[in-house]
């Protein structure tokens, strides 16, 4: 049963991701991205990472995807523009893709995957919080300062007179 649900979610993620890449209408691609992000949230739930799944919903669907759709809708003539999906530099592209495929296959086959028993952890939130404020405090603060800088920068750039 759990396997079946997993394969359904995985299929949803992959098929909608393919739809995002292959569709040449921007808005439909953005809607496809909605299902991809949902599928990824579902995969997080399967890894018992419930908090991360919630963050995925709140940040990616509620924040980033809304911004993307906003951006698409504010551009002119979105439904009439047909963007080309084919690459001009096919030779270079083929080389890069082959290299990436070999590299990823090697990573997948060589990594000693840690298989955890499928036990429900008590609560992942407390663990995430403790780690963020002890072991990963420096990266956490650096990212905070970076995001704050981006926020102030965006506010300055969008001011009148710029």
């Amino acid at each position: 049963m759990a396997d079946m649900v997993f394969w359904c979610i995985a299929a949803l993620t992959v098929i909608s991701a393919a739809f995002v890449v292959l569709n040449n209408q921007l808005l439909y691609a953005a809607i496809g991205l909605l299902f991809t992000l949902f599928g990824v949230a579902g995969l997080y739930v399967f890894l018992w990472a419930d908090f991360i799944a919630g963050v995925q919903l709140l940040v990616y669907i509620g924040g980033i995807l809304v911004l993307i759709i906003f951006g698409i809708m504010l551009t002119n003539q979105i439904s009439s523009v047909r963007l080309s999906q084919t690459n001009v530099q096919q030779g270079v592209g083929a080389v890069v893709v082959t290299w990436l495929f070999i590299f990823l296959s090697m990573v997948i086959s060589k990594t000693p995957w840690l298989i955890r028993p499928a036990l429900e952890p008590e609560s992942t939130t407390a663990g995430v919080g403790t780690l963020l404020l002890t072991r990963y405090l420096l990266p956490f603060e650096v990212i905070s300062v970076l995001l704050l800088g981006a926020l102030i920068g965006a506010a300055v750039l969008s001011r009148e007179g710029n």
Binding site: G54, L58, I61, V66
Partner: peptide, 19 residues
């Protein structure tokens, strides 16, 4: 486990539907 956070998270689906 993340009840209140989950409710906040799925609430954002409405925005996309409205747009």
């Amino acid at each position: 486990n993340i009840g209140i956070f989950y409710i906040l998270g799925v609430g954002s689906l409405a925005v996309i539907a409205l747009i």
